[in-house]
Simulated assay, not measured.
Amino acid sequence: MPVLPDLAAKRGHEAEALLALVLAGGPARPLRDLLEHFGNARDALAAGLPAWRAAGLGPQQMQALAVAAPGRMEQVRRWLDHPRHHLLGWRDADYPPLLRSCPNPPVAVFVDGDPAQLWQPAIAIVGSRNPSAAGRDNAYEFASALSASGLCVGSGLAAGIDAAAHRAALDGGGSTFAVIGTGPDLAYPRRHAVLQEQIAAAGAVVSEYPPGTPARSGQFPARNRLLAALCLGTVVIEAAERSGALITARLAAEAGREVFAMPGSIRNPMARGCHRLIRDGATLVTQPVDILEGVANLAGELAGALQNRLLTPIPDAPGAPCPAPTLPDQDYQRLWNALGYDPTGMDSLIRCTGLTASRLSSMLLVMELEGKVSSAYGCYTRT
């Protein structure tokens, strides 16, 4: 087995080296430890067998790193050439903060769409693939309301409840992302190919699996941990006692997220999983406002992480000058500058900032949870 100690240099740059680590597959923990030790993927890849073995990589992982698979690498490279396609690695500043804190986070995620969606406060809506008409309507109604409030709607692009939640967010012009169990270039089920493209165009499709990875049964429970981690809370709407939705709810609780469940008829077998969750401590919800109240604290933590990443200062003292932001993303500073101590309506904010109503709603929610902004009767003021 030929070892290529200068493999990273030959592949040119950090993204190529990170891609080699991702394609090595296997347990993520040793790969993360390798990246943490060396600080970047190029040095980790160039370190060679002794360092890989010391980090705990298995024989198959080491062989994959030492002997490149040109065809596989080229397939993924072609996918990444598209301007809408991204690879976010463990050491990247844009790696989603909520995902970083979950049990067993991936070394990297592939994103088709806008990676910034993964920094927005989001709620996961999950449930049965074969819901009742009422269950599907409830998913659509809750997703519409949460989206209108400025929250992003996350789900898994499965049939039934997942698809209804995604469509509701899209129909209302809100934000949504899908965490899938295949490569980001494949739709599962196939009939959701159009829906997946719509989500990628308006939001984001996320996968820890490289392009070209087909559907395999074990990958779908694994993707549930990413969905649970990326969201402030998970809402279960109709689920049998043994279902993927309950796995997502359990993983959400383990990741320190809120779990909500909608009750149903005692005669509906699709409600038994929700009743079990409520019995075990999940929050019973009958209206979207129950969810907003439940995730306020965690949303504030996410807002702090986002503000630190953007480095867009928002002054605490009234009358303090607004320094210029140090990064190109000036949305928060523009919004702050448009706000005053007199109530300002949404129409005025849209005109002053040039931002969409959906984007402004999301930003205002974050700022309100931080205590920077107060709202009353549809108008907003600095606090």
Rank of each mutant, 00 (worst) to 15 (best):
P2G: 08
D6L: 13
L7I: 11
L7A: 15
H13A: 08
H13V: 06
L19Q: 07
G25A: 04
P27D: 01
A28W: 07
P30G: 02
L45Q: 02
A47F: 01
A51L: 03
G56N: 04
L57W: 02
Q63M: 05
A64W: 00
G71C: 10
R77H: 07
L80Q: 13
L80W: 05
P83E: 10
L88S: 06
L88R: 10
P96G: 14
S101Y: 09
F110T: 10
D112H: 11
A124L: 01
G127H: 04
S128E: 11
P131F: 02
A133N: 04
N138T: 14
F142Y: 03
S147K: 04
S149A: 15
G154I: 00
G160V: 01
L170C: 04
G172T: 02
T176D: 07
L186T: 00
R190N: 13
V206F: 03
V206Y: 10
E208M: 09
Q219W: 02
L230E: 15
G233Y: 11
V235P: 03
S243H: 05
A255G: 09
M262E: 02
P269Q: 11
R272E: 14
L277R: 00
Q287K: 14
G294I: 12
N297T: 15
N297K: 15
A305Y: 09
N308G: 12
N308V: 12
L310C: 12
D316I: 11
A320T: 08
P321H: 13
Q330V: 12
Q330W: 15
A338G: 09
L339S: 03
T344S: 08
G345T: 06
L364M: 05
E370R: 13
S375A: 08
